[in-house]
Simulated scan of single mutants.
Amino acid sequence: MTPQRDEFSRSGYWYPEGDSAQTIDVLNMLRRYRAAETAMRARTRASMGMNETDLMALRFLLHEQRAGRLVRPIDLSRVLDISTASTTTLIDRLERDGHARREAHPTDRRAGVVVPTDSSDEEVQATLGAMHRRMLAYVDSLSDHDRAVVTRFLAGMSSAVEEASDRDPGVDPS
């Protein structure tokens, strides 16, 4: 970061006057992480030829499959907060692109389930596996105390952002 840029980032533009440089540095590092994660998600979507909703759906399908739970279309609708019509279109797209398939529910013959394909799981692992290993290695390198502090900090920041958006939906907390 150039000195001029560093001065701007601590200028108080986003934060009230009087906040310490260390406080603002922490908040700016959160912004940096958010930007890096956003860029990573965009690269992942591009490499897999998926939009954000498709990627979220696939992540949910893979998570539920690993947990041994069946996913019905209505479950996707609820998790993604989309209409049943949009869910049908989403599943059609995932199926067309080889990321998921529809199957009959094993105990309810009136219902169907959505299952991720093996190739989709392999593609996600190939695309994100190395990054996840680096992230896990870094977290594992922290002491138990440091992990507890980071966890408490991130939980508090999440609550602060959620509370801000609950009170004033027109304000972007970023």
Rank of each mutant, 00 (worst) to 15 (best):
P3T: 14
R5I: 07
E7L: 11
E17N: 08
G18P: 00
D19A: 10
Q22R: 14
T23S: 15
D25W: 08
V26Q: 06
L30W: 03
R31A: 09
Y33I: 14
E37R: 12
T38S: 15
T38E: 15
A39H: 08
T44R: 01
S47P: 02
G49F: 05
L55G: 03
L62I: 15
H63V: 09
R66Q: 13
R69V: 03
V71M: 01
R72H: 03
P73G: 03
D75K: 00
S77C: 04
T84E: 15
D92L: 07
D92N: 07
L94V: 00
L94N: 00
G98E: 01
A100T: 03
E103A: 04
A104S: 14
A104W: 06
H105I: 10
T107L: 02
G112H: 01
V114R: 04
V114P: 00
D118Y: 02
S120L: 02
S120E: 02
D121W: 00
V124A: 00
G129N: 03
M131K: 08
H132D: 14
H132M: 13
R134M: 12
M135R: 11
Y138M: 12
S141N: 11
D144N: 05
D146L: 04
V150D: 11
L154V: 14
A155E: 13
M157W: 09
M157Q: 13
V161D: 05
E162M: 09
E163N: 15
D168V: 12
